[in-house]
Design a binder for these strands. Structure first.
Length: 832
DNA sequence: GACCTGCTGCGGTTTG
């Protein structure tokens, strides 16, 4: 085949589609920008060939510039640096690139540099870098920790950042910002040629133009956004329980609808079943096999605690349709472009619009195909969320990603990184660091404090030699100790996780990992489930759990200590609006264009309306309940559990000023509960006062234990900043040990250096991330403009049910007891 | 620092 590269690019496009690659609708626009050396951001739904578009742009540019010798094996040096957040993606991308290169008859080679790269390959790369290098943010920083790193970038044309929407908003994104600032400026200083362009590749997010600005900040260029103006067609179908009356009002597993999932799996070639937690995914896998034994060997399990090798096999087998279905957690959210499936099922709330869309996008994977996703509610009310999601998708109400600001821990790690390779000159690096979006507001005195910390251990730690890492030699900041250098390299990165023990079969082969605290509760002989296998604990040795296969029917499903996804602001808002549609319960029965989910729930809404009230989006509903457990106050802001956590504490504090009461608090994504042994004095006369914006800041400080929260946040900060080392050669520190030393440091800083930047950062992270202070404040403002409706229902209402049920968990009842009790409560309600 | 449903992501070089 003959390829005409300039001026018409159509030939490549048609060649691509002949090869089965989808042409990105606006790829020519992207190519033209790249050819003319502009930087920017490419955005389109998944499966539109964004990756190819950027890659080909750089290829075309190269060929245009070297029309006579792009086929010769001259040593071109590194041309394209491809940053991707996932190791697993590197191989697929690399293979596709090689295919294109071969077709074009080019001499380029493609290399991968990450934790999986072998020593031999590293050595080869050291001698000669490939033209294209695919790398993770962490490995890129390790690259900057190598002597003479700047040399490698001297011919670099383009830095591409794949999945930028995933990286931005995390500290990994900050690492990318810093690395770009370094590469671009080292280039600028030493070379006469133009510094490399920067191109981001992003799925749709609410603040796309911010995403571009964050990425391009260090090169001080406006840049362009190349956006495919196309709407991906998405069909959402809820899996409806036959009789809503008999479907649980509370719960998280949703296994009761398993009989409706089996035909969906049977009817499609490949299916992904997204489950919210690792523990529940293990149970779903088991139950699927119990209900449909013929699935044995045709379905598999995939989550973050399962051994890598096993996971890779599962991904491959799904890709080649050897497997019919995979039960997974967020572990299969990414890695989209090259491994589509036919059907996607989401079990339980996806907590946000974009996560739901992303998962839907794994099916029907081409620009014009329809993506279909089934939504399976784990309790009745979750069907409202399904209706809300549909509306949100129609309106393209996609969440924004907020870029992180002034992460001093990442900055300290980065400066140590530079200090172990070539060393750095503060004046030069300060300007560079300030050119990034993250550190643009960095103050001179903060910078100096950081430098002081690096060289002297700062105010609080100056007695300890361990914290004097950097020496100043002729104005050059450098780490000369090989021990410190090695330790630092081992700890580069911003992902801090709990100590996990590896689980290994007695007969050989690893199964996965399990948390220290979980396994410490088990005795040898106990049985648990991991990766879908029943295992008997034999012994624990050297951070490894030795197990053998068990035939025991009674096993414990581990619970891992994961993050707590909160409902996003967008989905919360949509949820409140959806209640508008049903606020007049009579409307539901009559209306034909009502969402099927809402029609299905009509009996539940009628009950809610009859017993209490259905809140509209300009109302806040408060319910008083009385039970043998005491007096319950239920509030429904629909703001997600994190906001509710702070809001409930503030409310408890404010009520406490009226009467000295103590509460026990429970919450979910829809609302929260204050439980008390005495009547709770909240009524029409004081309700709006209790939700006032006045004195909010002070009341937050008085009610929320920010110090305790900051202490926990500080652990990660201390690890990232290198104050505590997680991994020393041949040793993994125990989680408890880590927590203890972090806590100690927190105390030292609080006492001797209370204005310390890392300490301040810990509090800032609590306010920004944990309490979501901006959102909390917005919620108080919204409530201030709403009508507060207070009801005193005679019985528990459908809305209060899941929250009170979660509250029961608090009180040390065994899970069996709770299930029985909920069933009894619900049966009682339905009877009369 | 715990368990109350609770995700994902990464990771050694230099010099002898």
């Amino acid at each position: 085949m003959k390829l005409y590269l300039t001026p018409g690019y159509q030939c490549i496009a048609s060649w691509l589609s002949a090869k089965g690659h989808h042409a990105f609708p606006f790829q020519e626009e992207a190519w033209q920008h790249i050819v003319s050396s502009k930087s920017g951001l490419v955005n389109a739904p998944t499966g539109c060939g964004k990756t190819f578009s950027v890659f080909l742009g750089s290829v075309i540019r190269f060929i245009n510039q070297h029309p006579t010798d792009y086929k010769s094996k001259s040593k071109n040096g590194l041309q394209l640096l491809w940053i991707t957040p996932l190791r697993a993606l590197a191989k697929d991308i690399g293979r596709a690139m090689e295919e294109v290169i071969e077709e074009l008859g080019m001499s380029w080679t493609v290399g991968i540099r990450n934790g999986d790269t072998t020593q031999a390959e590293r050595a080869r790369q050291k001698k000669q870098l490939p033209e294209v290098l695919i790398i993770t943010p962490e490995s890129l920083h390790l690259f900057l920790a190598q002597k003479g790193y700047a040399d490698a970038f001297k011919n670099l044309q383009l830095i591409a950042v794949d999945e930028w929407h995933e990286l931005m908003g995390s500290k990994r994104g900050v690492q990318v910002e810093l690395a770009i600032s370094r590469i671009v400026n080292s280039h600028r200083k030493s070379m006469a040629t133009k510094p490399p362009m920067i191109w981001g590749i992003s799925a749709t997010i609410g603040n796309l133009s911010d995403a571009k600005d964050v990425l391009l900040s260090a090169i001080r260029e406006e840049g362009v956004i190349v956006k495919a103006q196309m709407k991906k067609q998405i069909v959402v179908e809820s899996v409806l329980p036959d009789e809503i009356e008999n479907y649980p009002w509370a719960g998280h597993l949703g296994i009761k609808l398993i009989h409706k999932v089996i035909p969906i799996i049977e009817q499609s070639k490949t299916t992904l079943i997204f489950i919210n937690t690792r523990g529940m995914s293990e149970r779903w896998y088991q139950e699927l096999l119990n209900h449909a034994p013929e699935f044995a060997g045709a379905i598999a399990l995939h989550h973050g605690s399962i051994e890598q090798e096993l996971r890779l096999w599962v991904e491959e087998a799904l890709h080649t349709a050897k497997l019919k279905a995979v039960v997974c957690t967020a572990s299969l959210d990414l890695g989209v472009d090259f491994r589509p499936v036919e059907t996607v099922i989401q079990v339980g709330s996806p907590k946000g619009v974009s996560r739901f869309l992303q998962r839907a996008g794994r099916s029907g994977h081409s620009p014009d195909a329809v993506s279909k996703i089934y939504f399976l509610p784990t309790h009745s009310l979750e069907l409202v969320e399904a209706a809300a999601l549909k509306n949100a998708i129609d309106e393209e109400l996609i969440e924004s990603k907020e870029p992180m600001l002034l992460c001093f821990d990442v900055l300290i790690q980065y400066l140590n990184t530079l200090a172990i390779s070539d060393g750095f000159k503060p004046e030069e690096i300060f300007a560079e660091v300030k050119s990034t979006y993250c550190y643009r507001d960095l103050l001179q005195e903060e910078w100096e404090e950081v430098l002081k910390f690096l060289t002297e251990g700062g105010k609080a730690l100056q007695q300890y030699d361990d914290y004097k890492k950097i020496e100043v030699i002729d104005g050059l900041y450098k780490i000369t100790s090989r021990r410190i250098a090695m330790q630092h390299r081992l700890n580069i990165g911003t992902i801090v996780s709990d100590a996990m023990l590896k689980v290994r079969m007695q007969s050989g082969g690893y199964v996965g990992v399990i948390e220290e605290y979980f396994i410490s509760r088990l005795e040898p002989g106990d049985c648990f489930t991991l990766a879908g296998r029943n295992l008997e604990l034999l012994q624990i040795k050297d951070m490894t759990v030795l197990v053998k296969k068990s035939t025991s029917k009674k096993t414990i499903v581990p619970s891992w200590n994961g993050g707590r996804m909160s409902l996003t602001a967008n989905l919360g808002r949509k949820l409140r609006e959806t209640f508008n549609d049903v606020a007049d319960a009579g409307k539901i029965m009559g209306s034909k264009n009502q969402a099927p989910e809402l029609v299905h729930l009509s009996s539940l809404f009628q009950l809610q309306q009859q017993l209490s009230h259905i809140p509209k989006d300009n109302e806040l509903l408060i319910e008083h309940h009385e039970s043998k457990d005491g007096y319950h106050l239920l509030v429904y802001p629909f703001e997600g559990r994190q906001v509710h956590e702070a809001m409930s504490a503030i409310l408890a504090y404010r009520i406490g000023k009226i009467a000295p009461l103590t509460f026990s608090i429970a919450m979910n994504d829809y609302g929260f509960e204050l439980l008390c042994d005495q009547p709770i004095p909240v009524d029409d006369t004081n309700a709006s006062e209790l939700f006032t914006l006045n004195d909010l800041t002070a009341d937050i400080q008085r009610s929320v234990n920010a110090t305790e929260m900051a202490r926990r946040k500080f652990r990660d900060i201390a690890v990232i900043g290198g104050l505590i080392t997680q991994t020393a050669p041949g040793e993994q520190k125990k989680a408890r040990h880590l927590q203890a030393s972090a806590s100690l440091l927190f105390n030292v800083f609080s006492e001797y250096d209370s204005k310390n930047v890392l300490l301040r950062q810990a509090y800032q992270e609590v306010f920004d991330q944990q309490m979501e202070e901006v959102r909390l404040r917005n919620a108080f403002t919204r409530i201030g403009n709403s009508t507060i409706v207070i009801t005193v229902p005679q019985k528990f209402t459908p809305l209060c049910f899941p929250i009170i049920a979660d509250g029961l968990n608090r009180n040390n009842l065994s899970s069996e007891n709770i299930e029985d009790r909920i069933r009894r409560m619900q049966a009682q309600l339905m009877k009369d």
